[in-house]
Design a protein around this nucleic acid. Structure first.
Length: 555
RNA sequence: GCUCCCGUAGUUCAAUGGAUAGAACGCGAGAUUGCGGAUCUCGCGAUAUAGGUUCGAUUCCUGUCGGGAGCACCA
């Protein structure tokens, strides 16, 4: 439809002898202004030296004598908008289009043939899976699913810090506890608190600090049998635990990358480019002189000879590409990495320029809780599991609703900004929330299943509806029509909030419709309203699936 | 101190340079023998500040004020 109207406008502009400009066709804020609107007249007004309204009338007049099929009216509004109103017949046809397309409604081909890799979550073994990881996972999974709608081949990647100081800190404490083997009843929670204790010791106790640095080296070169044993056990426990969380959250990774591999290779890369890209710094460290490029100078190899985060990330870019020659690589991390990532991309561009341009860093903000609430006994860390459990009690024990509430709270705002996560608000379970969407869908499904049982037997309605035009109200149908464009925009901008905003508008419109009109047992109107309900349910289903928000059957 | 990000109803968030700045929570008033009330209807209420660019600025540019993150061997 959009294409048809756009082409027609261009055609008319040409016939009027007006200069060709990029024509914008928008969804107006209010359906009172039609289904589509354009501002060409205002944009052209000055160029041509005519009043925008007059110009708009001129163009509209032309359009009226040559309407695209499905457009019922063209109106001009001050100060020069041209608005397009669609016919009831066309709007009714949207309903059957949605039902015919089903799960495929909203897909497009804009990225067919592209290989895209998306890295997110990135929890560290030997540490807790905290709410920051939950946030990264939620956003990354939504990105992945959105990008898949464009026909791209998407691979999900998880990058995990299985070596480094945090590991050494945890092991330091485990060793001090004289842990013999895995028969000891320790799990992830204890690993988490071992890290906290080790961390504290590192900062407060010089002896411990030295021991931890020593352990760190031994983890890298695997020279100590006792440490190896603790290490292998801890790594396994952590990774197995993470899998249970991914399952809950609806993520399945294609690739796992570990710092133990990227560190080796990244360190090598840095050494090879010493003197070219990198320089010697203080205490034998190897640095990247970021100041040359008005960035920070960063250490890539520390004075112990071990690769830092930056060197590892450098190696990772290449390792990823070797495994999966990508067209685009998206990396989702917290925004405290922003400055480092700029340095990293600069260094990468000097070594592998082609990879640097293919890499896109998308950060997310921090998940903060209103102070005082929800602090864990072991420190300030709030684990994902604790949050989910807390949410669950508020969601009448329904885990799908709990996860939906949390995910929606994260996805409703633009990524990159901090989120003040007010538990009470996210789980008020009403209004602008995940459960609100879930409820609208569950309710629609309940009506539909009742329709199947008692009323009509030929669902789904994927054929034409007899004389539906008089039952068309317009708002729901126009929203249904917008869905594919909303998805495309959210995909292109990696902006899931467009989709959450849209779905909330759709659910709200549906709930109003539900309150106002009878769907079942409404005579001929039912013949239209049942498929309409089905189309709404289909779009809610498709949209929630794209956001990886669980869809409960009952709630 | 320097660099980056951000200031929108009382609160938490939207808004591709366009129309009356859109929701939700909260507050006030209503709707229930009705397909699922975790619902619906109505009301109150906001672009930090001073300039600039533009036919038109929440959006772009500059200053000020306020908040967050980072600033050499953690990730």
């Amino acid at each position: 439809m959009r294409e048809k109207i756009l082409n027609k406008i261009k055609e008319m502009l040409a016939e009027l002898g007006l200069p060709s400009v990029a024509v914008k066709l928008d969804f107006p804020e209010d359906f009172a202004y039609g289904a589509y609107t354009t501002n060409v007249a205002m944009a052209l007004g000055k160029q041509v030296g005519e009043k925008p309204v007059d110009l708009a009338e001129n163009i509209a007049g032309k359009l009226r004598s040559n309407l695209p099929a499905g457009v019922g009216e063209v109106k001009v509004a001050l100060p020069g908008f041209i608005n397009f109103f669609l016919t009831s017949e066309f709007l009714a046809s949207v309903v059957s289009e949605v039902n015919q397309a089903g799960k495929n409604y909203g897909l497009n081909n804009s990225r067919v043939g592209q290989k895209i890799i998306i890295e997110y979550t990135d929890p560290n073994p030997f540490k807790e899976f905290h709410i920051g990881h939950l946030m990264s996972n939620t956003i990354g999974e939504a990105f992945s699913r959105l990008v898949e709608t464009s026909g791209a081949e998407v691979k999900r990647a998880c990058y995990q810090g299985d070596v480094g100081m945090h590991v050494a800190k945890t092991i330091w404490f485990l060793r001090s506890q004289k842990l013999k083997d895995e028969s000891e009843k320790w799990g992830v929670e204890e690993l988490g608190s071992a890290y906290v204790t080790g961390s504290k010791a590192y900062e407060e106790n010089d002896v411990a600090k030295k021991e931890i640095i020593e352990i760190n080296k031994k983890v890298y070169d695997r020279s100590d049998e006792e440490i190896n044993k603790l290490y292998d056990w801890g790594r396994k426990v952590s990774l197995e635990y993470f899998e249970t969380i991914y399952q809950k959250l609806g993520t399945k990774f294609d690739f796992y990358f570990f710092e133990s591999e990227t560190g080796k290779f990244g360190g090598q890369l840095v050494k090879e480019n010493l003197g070219k890209v990198f320089e010697k710094g203080e205490n034998d460290a190897v640095i990247f002189p970021g100041e040359k490029y008005s960035l920070h100078t960063r250490v890539f190899i520390n004075s112990e000879g071990l690769p830092t985060y930056e060197a590892k990330e450098l190696g990772l870019a290449k390792i990823k590409y070797d495994k999966y020659p990508y067209y685009l690589s998206v990396v989702v991390t917290g925004n405290e990495i922003n400055e480092y990532f700029k340095v990293l991309l600069k260094a990468l561009s000097l070594i592998y320029p082609d990879l640097a341009v293919k890499t896109k860093h998308q950060s997310h903000g921090m998940l903060r809780l209103p102070s005082g609430k929800m602090s864990s006994r072991s420190g300030n860390v709030i684990t994902a599991e604790m949050l989910i459990e807390e949410a669950k009690t508020m969601a009448r024990g329904n885990e799908q609703v709990a996860i939906g509430a949390i995910k929606y709270a994260i996805l409703r705002q633009a990524p990159g900004k901090n989120i003040i996560f007010d538990m009470a608000q996210a789980l008020s379970l009403e209004g602008d929330s995940g459960p609100y969407l879930q409820y609208a869908l569950v309710r629609a499904q309940a009506v539909l299943s009742k329709a199947r049982e008692n009323f009509l037997h030929d669902l789904p309605f994927d054929g034409p509806v007899p004389s539906p035009a008089k039952f068309v109200d317009g708002a729901l149908e126009q929203l249904l029509l917008q869905y594919p464009e909303v998805v495309a925009r959210a995909e292109k901008e990696l902006a899931p909030q467009h989709l959450t905003t849209y779905l909330t508008a759709l659910a709200s419109e549906f709930n109003a419709f539900y309150a106002k009109e009878k769907i079942l047992d409404a005579g001929p109107a039912s013949i239209y309203r049942i498929p309409l309900t089905q189309a709404v349910a289909q779009v809610l289903h498709n949209g929630l699936t794209l956001l990886a928000i669980p869809i409960p059957e009952k709630m």
